[in-house]
Structures are given as structure tokens and as C-alpha cells.
């Protein structure tokens, strides 16, 4: 395609990976993202259309993984849909084509920086970052939460694995607080 070279949210050619003690923080650069919102009165139609392409539309406060489409709930009748960037850079156009006039679709890929955070026990890290009760949250829990003034989406993908979406422009600030907090646990 175009001869323009993309940069990660942190301003590098390749995503950053950090290991601090037991905590591993990986920037993800390979996920395309779009919002999908049901048009008024079209929630049912959207559900069927989504089913047709294997797009999950999970219940409030949850994430559902799939291939190629995964999704998490962000607001009443609105979801963020994830797909592999390499094959779905045009995520919004594809979803729009598949879901038709049941939905409003908006590209969100570059509005966010994504960090995957893994550790055997994430509770000590996240109790210093977020007011969510992560220890008690079930796997698949998804919620917005504020981390040091930065509004993020948090998805608990597994017992020791959390995905954070933060505003792309604040990627460096968000990584900084993750790093400092992880270091304080050493």
C-alpha cells in the first residue's frame, strides 16, 4: 500500500516489551479496533447480522474472544471489536459491509495504545493502579477504569493476564505508571 512507515504509539518502529520482576508488559501493534453501535431499534438485526459473521456481542462488562473477531462491551448497545491488524486493517469498512444499516461503525484502531500485562498474580499491581476489584472479577471481565488520571479499558483475559487500552496520545504516561508501579513491587 502506501509508502508511509507506521510508528507505534510509543513512537518506535517496533512494539515495546518490558519485564519487571514477574510482570511482563507488552505493547501490541497488531490489533485493529472498531466501535460497533446498534442503530435505534436495530439491536435484534445487529445480533443476527453479527452471528452471521461470527462476531460476538458480549453482555455488559464482558469480553468475548473469537476468531477473527473478538469484542468487549463499552456502553449500552455499543462494543469495541478487535481483529488481527495484518488481515483487517480496514476493519471499519469490513464491519460496515457485513452489518449494513443495523449499525454505526467507527474505526478506533489508532485511537488507542494496547498493553498486554501478564504476571502470575496481578492483584498487587492493579490494586495500586485501578479501583476495580480485579481479584474478584471473573475471566472475561471488561470495564473502563482510570489509571493515574488516564481513562482506559481493562479486559481480564485470564487469571494472570490483563489487556489495557489507553488513549494513544498518553501511551508514554501510561507505560510510565505501569513501569514505576511494577518496580515498586520488586
Amino acid at each position: 500500500m502506501a509508502n508511509l512507515k507506521p510508528l507505534t504509539a510509543l513512537g518506535h518502529d517496533a512494539p515495546e516489551v518490558l519485564s519487571i520482576g514477574a510482570v511482563r508488559i507488552s505493547e501490541r501493534f497488531d490489533v485493529a479496533l472498531a466501535s460497533v453501535a446498534a442503530r435505534r431499534g436495530k439491536a435484534g438485526d445487529l445480533a443476527s447480522a453479527a452471528q452471521g459473521i461470527g462476531l460476538p456481542l458480549p453482555a455488559p462488562a464482558t469480553h468475548q474472544a473469537g476468531d477473527p473477531w473478538s469484542a468487549f462491551w463499552v456502553a449500552p448497545e455499543m462494543w469495541f471489536v478487535e481483529a488481527p491488524f495484518a488481515s483487517h486493517e480496514d476493519i471499519a469498512a469490513r464491519l460496515k459491509a457485513a452489518l449494513g444499516d443495523t449499525t454505526s461503525v467507527t474505526e478506533q484502531t489508532d485511537a488507542w495504545v494496547r498493553f498486554d500485562i501478564a504476571a502470575p498474580d496481578l492483584a498487587p499491581l492493579f490494586e495500586r493502579l485501578s479501583n476495580l476489584d480485579l481479584a474478584r472479577a471473573p475471566v472475561g471481565f471488561a470495564s473502563r477504569t482510570v489509571i493515574e488520571h488516564v481513562g482506559t479499558y481493562l479486559v481480564k483475559r485470564a487469571a494472570g493476564e490483563v489487556v489495557l487500552y489507553g488513549p494513544r496520545s498518553s501511551a508514554a504516561s501510561l507505560l510510565h505508571v505501569l513501569e514505576v508501579t511494577a518496580k515498586s513491587l520488586l
Binding site: 446498534a38 442503530r39 455499543m78 474505526e107 489508532d110 485511537a111 494513544r168
Partner: peptide
């Protein structure tokens, strides 16, 4: 029938 989403950073 209106849906809103911020795209400032996108």
C-alpha cells in the same frame, strides 16, 4: 437514532 464516539486520537 444517533450514535456518538470520539475519534480525536484515531
Amino acid at each position: 437514532d444517533v450514535q456518538l464516539i470520539s475519534t480525536t486520537e484515531a
